[in-house]
């Protein structure tokens, strides 16, 4: 069976993140207990979303520079996986919050803003599907996609750092605080969990791109 090296690497890294993430030692903390291990799975969803959305906006810009349906196919496929990752991140966060903060939705600033960011991305698909003309759809979609990606930066990065939040690391750089993660956790989080989930997202996107290239081949070669 032929499988490219990075797909194998993705499987190996995610297996390591899964087994190591569940079985290796973690800091012992009240309230959090073993749920601190969720960091390996919940947080990489947001890293993955950012990575595939960056790929998506790259292809949207490529479309505006040199219009071609292939760029549009790439942009929409990456954005789809981005919104999937974001939704999964939001849901897993709500499950986690239910057992640590007491309820799934506490109107935490990061919860609200990530929901807003997802809605902005959802509008990308609404906008695209409301236009029947293929070229117009691709162009308007590309322009809106740039706006949606730009909105990720204030909603996920800037505003949460200015407000009180139930999430750790509010007064600084979340995730880089040694009180939240110690060196044992960094050994799984950075080398395995984050790149593993990013590669998985790109893998799924490329499958979707290849599928669309086959199903839309009449349009592509027209």
């Amino acid at each position: 069976m032929k499988l490219s090296w990075w797909k194998l690497l993705c499987i190996v890294l995610l297996s390591y993140a899964l087994i190591g993430g569940l079985l290796m030692e973690v800091p012992r903390k009240a309230i959090l207990n073993e749920t601190i291990r969720n960091i390996y799975f919940h947080v990489p969803m947001w890293f993955g979303m950012m990575a595939v959305c960056a790929c998506s906006v790259y292809h949207s810009i490529a479309y505006l520079r040199k219009p071609g349906l292939l760029s549009d196919i790439r942009a929409v496929s990456y954005a789809e996986v981005g919104i999937l990752y974001g939704a999964l991140g939001l849901i897993t966060g709500m499950i986690w919050a239910n057992y640590t903060w007491g309820k799934p939705w506490s109107n935490d600033i990061k919860q609200i803003l990530s929901a807003i960011a997802l809605l902005i991305y959802a509008a990308y698909f609404v906008l695209r599907n409301s236009i029947t003309d293929l070229d117009k759809r691709a162009r308007v979609g590309a322009v809106y996609n740039i706006f949606a990606f730009a909105m990720l930066i204030p909603t996920l990065y800037v505003i949460p750092r200015m407000m009180e939040s139930l999430h750790p690391g509010g007064q600084g750089n979340p995730g880089a605080d040694p009180r939240d993660m110690d060196s044992r956790m960094h050994m799984i989080f950075w080398p395995a969990a984050v790149p593993g989930f990013i590669m998985l997202g790109i893998w799924i996107s490329t499958l979707s791109i290849r599928f669309r290239k086959i199903s839309d081949k009449n349009l592509l070669h027209a």
Partner: peptide, 28 residues
Amino acid sequence: GKIYVVVAVLLVLFTGLFIYLIRIDRKI
């Protein structure tokens, strides 16, 4: 605390997902 049960469940889950992904990959 039966953590290995959870590990087993997640391993089965991810194995299934990966097999599915690889099969779609090969079909495409």
